[in-house]
Every structure is written in C-alpha cells, then in structure tokens.
Write a protein that binds this DNA or RNA. Structure first.
Lengths: 371, 371
DNA sequence: ATGAAAGCGCTAACAA
DNA sequence: TTGTTAGCGCTTTCAT
C-alpha cells in the first residue's frame, strides 16, 4: 500500500471537506446530494449491498431495515450515481430518441407524448436531432448512442437498409413512428383509410377534378406515409369511377413553401382542379396561399383538404384528417418500455400499433359550383 | 482468490463468447462495439492508460503510438464506455435542457439551435419537458438531473427563488434563455426595444387607440419577457403623448385561444381600438380570428402587430417583430460550452447576451382610416 | 434477510 | 513518453 492521496470525490465540487458529521447541505438546507451508498450504509449500520437492495425496492430486505435506510438516505439527500449504477449493472435507463426535425409541429407533439411516458418510468431521454441529410449521414456513420442507451426510438424516418442494419447492430429494442420496418415494432396511423376519407369527402361534394399535392419522389422505400396517403387518393378515385390524371398531381415536399409551389404549378396547367387534397396540412397552408395570390378563393373557387390537423388548421379553417399525434409518442414509448420490462432483448415478434384517424370538416371545402 | 465465475460482460448482450481472435462483427461487418480498452491495449502492446490517452488526444503520446492505437481501436469498433468514463472522471459530457413546452414553436426552434451546438462539441442532450405546473413542481422537487449533467440550460422559465436555489445546489453552470436571474448567464433579446418598434410603427400609421394583448398577471417576477414588451408599449405611448388606458388592455396568456379571448373582450368594451399590439404572434393569430368572427377585417378595420415572427406569420401576413430564435439556442449553448471548456465551475461573472430584433412589415397593418 | 467481495471499464496520480 | 495502480460508486454473485 502506498501512502498516496485518494482523489477528491468529484472533479467539479472540490469546494472542501464538510465540517462535522451532519449531512452536507447548502445554506438553505437543500441536500447537495453527493453522498455515497457507503455513507448511507455506515449510518444505517448495514452493508452497501443491503442499502442498494433497499433503495431499489428488491424484495429481499425486511420492511424495518428498508424504512430505516430510506429515512437515512433521505436525510443525507442521497441520490444514486447513474454512472456507477450503469457501469455495474449494464443498464443505462436511457432511451435515445432520433428525430429528423425537432422544430416541426409534428415532432414536438410526439416527443411531448413519449417524454412523459419515459420520464414516469424513470427513463432518461437522450435527444438526437438530425436536422437534414448531413446530420443524418453523420449520425448513422458514428452511431453516437452506442453504449449509452437501453433502447432507441426513431421518428418518421424512411430508413435505408444500411440504417436498419446499423440500428440492429446496437442490439437494443428499437421503436418506430410512422414507418414500418422489420423487425422493429412501430406505431402508426392508417394513412390509406385517412386519405380515403378525405378524398371521399370531396367526391361526395361533387368534385371530379381533384388535385393531389403529394410528397417528393425522393422518399426512400421504407417511408410508407406519403405512399399510403397517395394510395387512399387513388383508391377513392377508382371507386368513384374517376380516372387518375397526372396533370392533377404535383409534389410539395411536405413543407409550406413546397405546397405553395405545387399549387402554383397546378394552376399553370391546362386542366384546372375544383378541389385539392394535400398530403399534409403544412402543404395545404402553402396551397391556400398560392390560391389567394392567384386571386382564387377557398372554398368558393377551390376546395382544400389537408392531413394532420396541425395546430393552425383550426385557425385557417382547414378541413383535414385528424390523427392522435401525442398518443403516437405515448404508444411507442409504452411498446418499448414493455419490452424493456420484459427483460432480455429479443429481436423477434414485431408489434404494430395502428391508431385511428377522423375527418374534421371545416370551412375550406364546399360543394362544387355548378359547372 | 475464490474460484468464482466472472460476470458476463454486459447483462443484455449475453449472446456468447466470440469465436476466434478477430474483432467481433455483425454479419454485415459492422463492428458491434463492445470491446474494451484493455482489448485495444493488449492488441497494441501498450497499457490501458496509453490507449486512454491516445484516444482522448492527450499530448503525451507519440504520434506513432497513437496512430497504431487508433487503427486498432477502429478495427475493433471500439467505443469508450460512457458510464465507465463518467465514473472515473466525474464528467458526464451531458447537458440537461429544461423546457416548459416542447411542443411549442419557439422551443422547437431554440432546441434545434442548441442541440447542434452541443452535439458538435461532443455533449449529450438530456431533455426534460415540464409540460405545465405539475411537471414543473415535480421536476424541481426531485431534481432528476442531480449527478447526471455537467451543465443545465433553462428555457423561458420564470424561476422562483426556490427554483433558483435548487438549480444552484446542482453546482454546475446554468444557462438561461429569455429570463435573467443572478448568477446565471443568459441569452435574450431586447424586448423593450422590439416592442417599441412595433408600437411606434402603429403610431406612425396614425393610430391612437392601440390595444395591448398582454400575458397573464400570474407570471412570477423573474420572467421579464412580458413585462419588458409591455414596457415598450407604454414608453411609445408616452413618447407620442397618448395616455395609457386600461380599457385597451386584455390578457391573452401567450396562446392562440387566449389571444382570441382577449380580443373578444376588447371588442365588448366601450372604447374600440383601431389597432392592437399582441405580445406574441400566437396571440395575434387568435386576435385575428376573433376579429374575423366579429365581422371586422384586418387591416381595414383593425391593424394588428405581433411579436416573434412565428413560422405562420408570413402565411397569415402578420406584421411582427422578428427575433433570432435558433440563434438564441446556439448562443446559450456556446456560453455554457465556453464555461465548461474553461475548466472548473465558477459561479461568478454572469454573462448576458442580447440579440437584435427587427420589425417586419406585412399586410396586417395600415394607416388609420379617417375618423 | 444480510454481508463480503469481486468486478464493471475507465481515468488520473505517481513513478519510471 | 509510457506503465502501474488506485480508485470512481455502484451491482451482483455467493456464502451465511
């Protein structure tokens, strides 16, 4: 044994040794929370193992002992050191959440749902905002969540095969929102049905020249949302005996600016629509603006239906398909938590949860005026 | 020494020992990344300490050795274990971000700014969404980020004295956005100046009966935003020789619904405004809707100015005060990172960064019609 | 129901 | 420039 000085307890809090034997507290009495398991054990006259068990609620501790330990831990302001606990147990109690754009309405909503769910189960939420293709590529190349999460949640990302492999390589449960890829569990809505309802609404109002403001052609295979919504559109056309006309379709990129562009394009073509279905509300907003700029009125000249029930849809009086957004976050979190609680990681048994949608009729749609 | 079996490397990945001596890889060749420092050390024929130094870029390693070590680590798909590193070093390389409502436009923007900044510096972002008073109280009572972050970022929270104390007790750097409390550093905009510009714009257009849609009366002391913006309003009135009239003020709670309510109240009073300044765009949106419902037109009957330059302001043609939102996130992150890089935690020297605002004139304001 | 002790995988003092 | 060796603060066998 050398006579070497032991290291200070924490690098940052080198303020000095605590005087006396009482719990170290701030001036106002709030516990500083940097005492250790062994401090508690010493005070309670038991081993650290027992304290650990007691505090984690394991059944092999007598109620009496537990009560005493809890009281002392409380008094000392003891909080378990996550790093130590993680290192020893191999579990991080952390979920990585990967989101394409944190600053878009949809993702804020979903995250608020899943955050609450994770938090109440004692899980930390590590946020990764990709914010575009560059960030996305770097993320999947580096995989910064290796060794730091027990599970991963991926929101609305059309995953490539390579990305799927990278995620699988993490060997932790993965949950998806808005995309379905084996073998990951996922939560989604029935996009086909939702879109059908929207378009059927227009058909029922007498419209035959119904434009489609779709996504981009560039969305990779695994991203089913735009494809499914488009399919709903096509199905209803077929069922109503209306022939699909590519003249009536334009891509809007799922942004407001894109929707505006798409509608402008449509207005510049030979066949004029009396109604339009936008695959998202934000595109619908853009389309409405394009119409206004062209001197056309909604719904007098053109009816518009969106999809999502964005916060602003109500304000802008947009008829749309509402979906439970926050609930998708809640649901996917629950899926993951169940799996984590169930114990060891199993890649098998993909679970798929599908949530309902509903048409909300507002003022942006009306019967087609007599031709 | 007992003949006890050593524990499996990780609790979750008990898949089995790797056959052969090559790096353990998935079928597709992606490294699984669960080798340890000593694996690398062994392969490189050096001590773990040297590997640790080499990989962290410490200057006390010869370039030659470092290159060899890096190559081997790469080949093995080695990634440092955060828990072990944290436990040993006392540094978590994690920043806790506390946000009142993740699902509001402003916070999504700010987070996207600061996330990028933190990420590029190798810091993890632990997200805490309070989501209302209940969550807030629970958060400050439990302080779930004790022992798990190197720094904390608090967005737009009017902190009570108690909350400030709890944060100080963490003994880590704290950064604020949109509120200024000693001794925390903060980033903000000049709300007084921004509001002044907005109201002055209305005055210059000839308006004298300018309503104010303010926040709630319930906002605690430390939250200066609504107070400052209101002050800007009052200052310009005074400077224009217009007397402040409580009849022309209503609280809108910083929500769309609140703004609608406020405008309805105003319209029900005896003195009718020809213009209104809303302390936020979302309230302005609500106000516009209330006007529309009352058969009044914007800007023909009433001019409206907002504050924030929300995504939708452009679409709704709202004159407003624009502020750099993403940049506030970037700036506050940088403040914190600088402090962290500077070494030991120092409570002293509060830094305050103030970002500029600018009036954006759109179609919701026009000269007062002849009386 | 409890205790003893061996790690978990690193970092940092100290020595060489 | 590199190696040796204590820890960091827990969890988890295994023994009692």
């Amino acid at each position: 044994m050398t006579g070497r000085k032991p290291r200070a307890r924490t690098a940052a809090a080198g303020a000095g040794a605590s005087p006396g034997v009482g719990p170290r507290t701030e001036q106002n009495g709030a516990p500083v929370g940097d005492s250790s398991l062994s401090d508690v054990a010493q005070r309670a006259g038991v081993s650290t193992a027992t304290v650990s068990r007691a505090l984690r609620g394991l059944p092999t501790v007598s109620e009496q002992t537990r009560a005493r330990i809890v009281a002392i831990a409380d008094e000392l302001g003891y909080v378990v050191s996550p790093s130590a606990s993680r290192l020893a147990s191999g579990r991080t109690h952390t979920v990585g959440v990967i989101v394409p754009y944190i600053d878009r309405w949809f993702f804020g909503q979903v995250i608020s749902g899943l955050e609450r769910e994770l938090r109440t189960q004692g899980y930390d939420l590590l946020l990764y905002n990709l914010g575009g293709d560059v960030g996305r590529d770097r993320f999947f190349a580096e995989m910064p969540l290796r060794r730091r999460v027990d599970a991963v949640l991926v929101l609305s990302l059309p995953l490539t095969d390579g990305e799927v492999e990278r995620l699988r390589a993490l060997r932790v449960p993965v949950g998806l929102v808005g995309a379905s890829v084996e073998p990951f569990s996922c939560v989604r809505i029935d996009d086909v049905a939702g879109a059908s309802t929207a378009v059927r609404h227009l058909v029922n109002l007498g419209h035959r020249d119904i434009a489609l403001i779709s996504g981009g052609a560039d969305a990779p295979m695994h991203f089913t949302t735009p494809l499914d919504r488009r399919r709903g559109y096509l199905e209803v056309l077929a069922e109503a005996g209306i022939e699909y006309d590519p003249e009536l379709e334009a891509a809007g990129d799922f942004t407001m600016a894109g929707g505006e562009r798409a509608m402008s394009q449509l207005l510049g073509r030979s066949r004029q629509p009396t109604a339009a279905f936008a695959l998202s509300d934000e595109m619908a907003f853009g389309a409405m603006r394009a119409l206004r700029k062209s001197g056309l009125r909604v719904p007098d000249d053109v009816s518009i239906v969106g999809f999502d029930d964005h916060d602003m849809a109500d304000l802008l009086d947009l008829t749309t398909v509402t979906q439970p957004v926050v609930e998708q976050g809640t649901a996917v979190a629950r899926l993951l938590l169940d799996r984590l609680a169930a114990g060891r990681y199993a890649e098998v048994s993909q679970e798929v949860v599908s949530l309902p949608t509903r048409l909300v009729v507002r003022g942006s749609t009306r019967p087609r005026s007599a031709p």
